[in-house]
Nucleic acid binder design. Structure first.
Length: 494
RNA sequence: CGCGGGGUGGUGGAGCAGUACCACGCCAGGCUCAUAACCUGGAGGUCGCGGGUGCAAUUCCCGCCCCCGCAACCA
């Protein structure tokens, strides 16, 4: 059995999940479900990134102990994914002292043992209002902090650094050789360009006085491990790397696909492989980089107030509808747009009137005119059409090109609709029982395959389709249809 | 002169040298099994702007304009 390990980025719990977070989880979920259907041994990891001064500050503002604050938000993420039917196998939390922390310490020790950690003073711009370092981005034209309208002070402090520069060439080679693929190509170029200039060493710790909420540096309590060695380690800590129980690590690592957003590409394509190389561990096989979701053409922003809660969408339209939108409307590696108008257009066009209506057409005829179970059988033209679409679909799924894969399925739905029109199935039902059975079996079989192909995308709906056709899920050569027209899969929205 | 990505009919996308394609929307016709659904046909684009190379450019090259992203935590 082939193993398939897929991860998403872990979400920072400094807020609640929004519509943008869902894209990545849904993408990874479809890949995971697709591979499970293929019979692969799949492990799908997601979780939350919970440490950092920002969280500590937010918790303080909320008047809650930081552990509690982080736990509450982590729960909100986990619940959102449960509502969306995300089939993760484990939900890792970086605050988990038994599952996560031991691996983080082990990573640190490994890097240190390899002489890749050194102490250096770091000079940064410190904003008193923020009580934290700020970047150029946070400053306005006069060099003042945008929020506090105060000039930041230059502050020097001692940090541990990781010798990432040492690994530039190796990472570059791994990318060029295809050992670690970066999809899409444009993102790969971005990193290769960066590698040409050489990666810079990165700060790997903060003084504990500034960063209390995190994993302490081994043998130096005055420093706390900074986000990189902490958060990135989740991908192997969840598998038990560095502990006595590392069976999962041995089985699943390296990751087959790591799904990330374009904003964290550099961390995953430079720092992460740097860490792994230093530890002598294999690199992930593929980094899949998705874009961002805009709402009504605008960036998500709290001040604009266009942040959408995925739970609301799920509650109103169902998890499958949102999953379907994210996968069909959004080009997987590009920025996409979410709007209620577009969402409802997709819903009506593809789900209600495409898939739903086809099912209704077939089952209503089947229920009325078939007196006993009907063997599935494809006409040779339909078999040819199916083979063609199936092959294209598989190719796209393997490459995580979800919207293209779904387009192939839509084509099959159109094909079946056309077939019903061309053969005048409703006339055959009354005038030619033999021919009718042949033709309804043909289109029902196509629909069964459609449902099968859509199982990773809209699992609940596919199950309903199978139920109404009166068959068990699976890509078999033959089924016995016992059709029963049920409720509309997706009631048309007005 | 920082670096990278992008600008294709109303909308979202594909194409990347040889009469510009797909989906949705819109208009007309057909059909009536179906969630007023389904099928067919049609209208609609000087492919951001200017220049260059080619027999031929949306597709290659140069310049410009506009959007978006980018190394200390923003998915």
């Amino acid at each position: 059995m082939k193993k398939f390990y897929i991860t998403t980025a872990i979400d920072y719990v400094n807020g609640k999940p929004h519509i943008g977070h869902t894209l990545e989880k849904v993408q990874a979920d479809v890949a995971a479900r697709y591979h499970r259907l293929k019979g692969d041994d799949v492990y799908y990891l997601t979780g939350t990134d919970e440490h950092g001064a920002k969280i500590a500050r937010s918790a303080e503002k909320a008047g809650k102990p930081v552990e509690k604050y982080a736990a509450e938000n982590a729960k909100a993420f986990q619940e959102a994914w449960d509502n969306l039917n995300i089939s993760y196998d484990y939900f890792i939390r970086t605050s988990n002292k038994t599952r996560h922390w031991p691996s983080v310490r082990k990573v640190w020790q490994g890097l240190a043992a390899n002489d890749d950690i050194y102490k250096k003073s770091y000079t940064g711009l410190y904003c008193v209002g923020h009580e934290a370092f700020v970047t150029k981005k946070d400053l306005n034209k006069e060099g003042k902090c945008e929020i506090h309208d105060a000039e930041p002070e230059k502050v020097e402090e001692e940090n541990y650094f990781f010798k990432l520069s040492k690994y530039t060439k190796k990472v570059e080679k791994a990318i060029k050789s295809g050992e670690m693929k970066i999809v899409p190509k444009s993102r790969e170029n971005e990193i290769l360009k960066l590698a040409e200039k050489g990666f810079e060493d990165v700060s790997f710790s903060r003084p504990s006085k500034d960063l209390k909420w995190g994993v302490p540096v081994p043998r130096d309590k005055s420093q706390t491990i900074y986000v990189w060695a902490d958060a990135l380690t989740n991908y192997i800590s969840a598998l038990g790397w560095g502990t006595s129980n590392d069976k999962k690590y041995k089985k699943y690592w390296p990751a087959d696909v790591q799904v990330i957003g374009k904003d964290i590409l550099r961390f995953h394509a430079a720092i992460w492989p740097g860490i792994l190389l230093s530890l002598g561990l294999p690199l992930p096989k593929k980094l899949f980089v998705h874009g961002f979701i805009n709402v009504e053409g605008k960036k998500l922003s709290k001040t604009l107030g266009n942040v959408i809660d995925p739970n609301e969408i799920v509650e109103k339209y169902g998890a499958d509808a949102l999953r379907y939108y994210m996968l069909s409307e959004i080009q997987p590696t590009k920025d996409g747009d979410f709007s209620v108008e577009k969402f409802e257009a997709r819903y009506n066009g593809d789900l209600a009137l495409g898939l739903g209506n086809l099912l209704a057409r077939i089952t209503s005829l089947g229920e009325k005119y078939l007196d006993k179970p009907l063997e599935s059988k494809l006409t040779s033209v339909s078999q040819k059409e199916l083979d063609k679409r199936w092959k294209a679909y598989e190719g796209y799924m393997e490459e995580l090109q979800f919207s293209d894969a779904i387009r192939e399925v839509s084509a099959l739905i159109s094909y079946a609709d056309k077939r019903i029109n061309d053969t005048k199935l409703w006339v055959l039902a009354k005038e030619d029982a033999g021919k009718f059975k042949e033709e309804i079996s043909d289109v029902a079989t196509i629909l069964a395959y459609v449902a099968w192909m859509l199982t990773p995308v809209i699992p609940t709906t596919s199950e309903k389709v199978f139920n109404q056709l009166g068959i068990k899920p699976g890509a078999k050569k033959t089924w016995k249809f016992k059709m029963e027209k049920g409720e509309a899969l997706f009631p048309r929205l007005e």
